[in-house]
Design a protein around this nucleic acid. Structure first.
Length: 96
DNA sequence: CGCTTGACACCGT
DNA sequence: AACGGTGCCAAGC
C-alpha cells in the first residue's frame, strides 16, 4: 500500500465533529512527511470518501483549501466551531 | 536517477 | 504576536 493510501485510510476513520493535523497523521504512519500527507489530500482521488476538510494545521488553522471558505461551513455543520479561521484543537483534535 | 513542488511544521527574528 | 527562512518526505516530470 502506498503512503497516500494509508493517509486516506486514516482520514476515513476521523469521526464527525473531530479534526486532526497533518503532523499527527504522519506520526501515525511512522513517518515525518507532513507535507506528503497534504499532497495526498490534494490529490485525493476519493473526494467524498475522504473527509479532507477534517484535516487542519498543527496551529489550528484550517489550511490552504480553506481559501474556498465553504469547507469551514461544512465543519461547523458537523459541530466544529471555527474561531478566527482556526479550530479549537483542545476540543476537537482527534489524535487516533 | 535527480530536481522541483506541495492542502505543512518548527525555530529564529 | 506576526512574518520569514529552513527542513521534512513522497510523488511527478
Amino acid at each position: 500500500m502506498k503512503f497516500e493510501e494509508k493517509v486516506w485510510q486514516l482520514l476515513k476513520r476521523i469521526p464527525k465533529g473531530k479534526v486532526t493535523t497533518y503532523k499527527i497523521i504522519a506520526r501515525k504512519l511512522n513517518a515525518r512527511a507532513y507535507r506528503a500527507v497534504g499532497r495526498a489530500c490534494a490529490r485525493n482521488p476519493n473526494a467524498p470518501r475522504v473527509p479532507c476538510h477534517r484535516v487542519v494545521m498543527s496551529s489550528g488553522k484550517l489550511g490552504g483549501y480553506t481559501a474556498d471558505g465553504s469547507k469551514a461551513s461544512l465543519l461547523k455543520k458537523e459541530g466544529v466551531i471555527i474561531r478566527n479561521g482556526k479550530v479549537d484543537l483542545v476540543k476537537y483534535l482527534y489524535d487516533f
